[in-house]
Design a protein around this nucleic acid. Structure first.
Length: 421
RNA sequence: GGAGAGAUGGCCGAGCUGGUCGAAGGCGUUCGCCUGCUAAGCGAAUGUAUGUCCUAAUAGAUGUACCGAGGGUUCGAAUCCCUCUCUCUCCGCCA
């Protein structure tokens, strides 16, 4: 949620910023709703004040008739209050709905661009591998060597589900441990293992709801939702909490499975393990002061990239332009790995600074010192990294001519004496 | 799943036969006094959110809401009633 004061005081500025995102947002309507909401609230408060005064008078009043008269007066006041409150509920409800659907404002130095075609590659890292044969796709290798079972995945769960077997199952498990170990040991993140099912407030807090309900799984019986990313439970751990400035930044790393319906992407990325309804991910989450956010974003990106450097996987860093920013982000960088088999760049991490957008929704604040007023924190996160696509990159980059996968040096300690899958 | 107990300010803890309760008391914290230093002692202050007025102001004045959450009764609710959530104890079941 953006600050309503911006709409109150700098409406034209907000409109201009929203134009950079190439979305239409009913700023004027929000402004007017806010005005009438405040007017109603003011009227109601005056009425309540009158009621309070009269009630107190009744308590000390002796004369029966005066009491009756005053009681009748309060009853009339209550009727007006009720009337105004009903009005307020309608106006306030509409206001809230609209506010929750306003995307975050783009950060100051985010380049303006229409869509993903105007994103800029910041830089390339690690040399592409040279092959003296045509590199195979991960799914061909997986099927040929019985390391991925797509048929039985579909049999037990439907399309976009697969079963990893033997060396690939172990490779994924090794990667999970490797990533967690690196972030905990070398990057100073505190590991957490959160629930995979969460209540609705969490998803409103981090901005997945109400807008992206279509892409989320829900258990109707309990009202709980399945996590689409660990960002949601980990950030929401601190919902409605106030930090002391000296306790920031908070840095967490979490491993979870993630569940997404992927309706929007129907028919897209159906081959291989690139896009499933369930996938594993290591997530990095930071909570910082506003002034530390930029630096923390850059180090978060570096932390995610470190995984790829240790694995020696070619990748590139992309700066996301305004038109391609996600709903909640004020600034965002993507990391893409190169997969020579399918010959694609695959997004393995999206690193974002959300400014105070999520903090405002989830009510997460900090105090600079004991006597100062609580301010909203900045929340940041990025994958560190998404498992299936790193799996693709490892499999396709480390394949040998005879269809085996050489185990990257960084993962050797997770595989005992084996050198190949 | 069954039976019972509970949820109050940074913490502990009164109030719960409805009005004088934004809420006693204690602890903690902050400031001042006292003091060779520390401790003790004395005095004062000390919730959050949001609106209005006034402002250079996150300074002042004032309104409203908040005693787990949401409804209800009443002129008036922390106090009474209903629903829900969570915590604790006991029983059952269980990886």
């Amino acid at each position: 949620m953006i600050d309503i004061k911006l709409i109150r005081e700098q409406r034209e500025y907000v409109k201009k910023e929203m134009e950079k995102l190439f979305v239409s947002v009913p700023i004027d309507e929000i402004f007017e709703l806010d005005e009438s909401k405040r007017r109603l609230l003011y009227d109601i408060e005056c009425l309540r004040n009158a009621r309070k005064t009269l009630s107190k008078e009744i308590a000390s009043e002796k004369d029966e008739e005066t009491i009756l008269m005053k009681k009748a007066k309060v009853k009339r006041i209550n009727e007006s209050i009720k009337f105004q409150e009903d009005e307020l509920n309608i106006v306030g409800g509409r206001f809230k709905t609209l506010m929750l659907s306003v995307p975050n404002l783009p950060g100051r130095d985010v380049p303006v661009g229409k869509d993903e075609t105007e994103n800029a590659v910041v830089s390339y890292f690690n040399e592409k591998k040279k092959f003296d044969f045509t590199p195979e796709t991960h799914y061909k290798i997986g099927q040929k060597r019985d390391l991925i079972d797509f048929e039985r995945g579909a049999k037990i769960s439907g399309t976009r589900f697969y079963i990893l077997k033997k060396g690939f199952a172990r490779l994924q498990r090794a990667l999970i441990n490797f990533m967690l170990d690196v972030h905990v040991t070398y990057h100073d993140y505190e590991e957490v293992y959160p629930p995979y099912m969460i209540n609705e407030e969490c998803l409103i807090g981090t901005g997945q709801l109400p807008k992206f309900a279509d892409n989320l799984y829900k258990d109707e019986d309990s009202g709980l939702w399945f996590v689409p990313t660990a960002e949601v439970p980990v950030t929401n751990m601190y919902r409605s909490e106030i930090f002391n400035a000296e306790d920031l930044p908070i840095k967490h790393v979490a491993y979870t499975a993630c569940f997404r319906k992927e309706k929007m992407s129907a028919g897209k990325d159906t081959k291989g393990i690139k896009r499933g309804h369930q996938f594993d991910k290591i997530e990095l989450v930071k909570i910082t002061t506003p002034e530390a956010a930029k630096e923390e974003l850059l180090s978060l990106i570096a932390d995610a990239q470190d995984i790829l450097n240790r694995l020696d996987i070619p990748h590139r860093l992309i700066r996301i332009c305004t038109g391609d920013l996600s709903f909640t982000a004020s600034e965002k960088f993507d990391i893409e790995v190169y997969a020579p088999g399918i010959n694609e760049w695959l997004e393995v991490s999206s690193c974002s600074d959300f400014g105070s957008f999520q903090a405002r929704r989830a009510n997460i604040k900090f105090k600079r010192n004991k006597s100062s007023k609580a301010e909203y924190v900045n929340t940041l996160n990025g994958s560190g990294l998404a498992l299936p696509r790193v799996m693709i990159a490892v499999i396709e980059n480390y394949q040998t001519k005879d269809g085996r996968i050489r185990i990257p040096n960084a993962l050797k300690s997770y595989f005992g004496t084996e050198e190949f899958i």
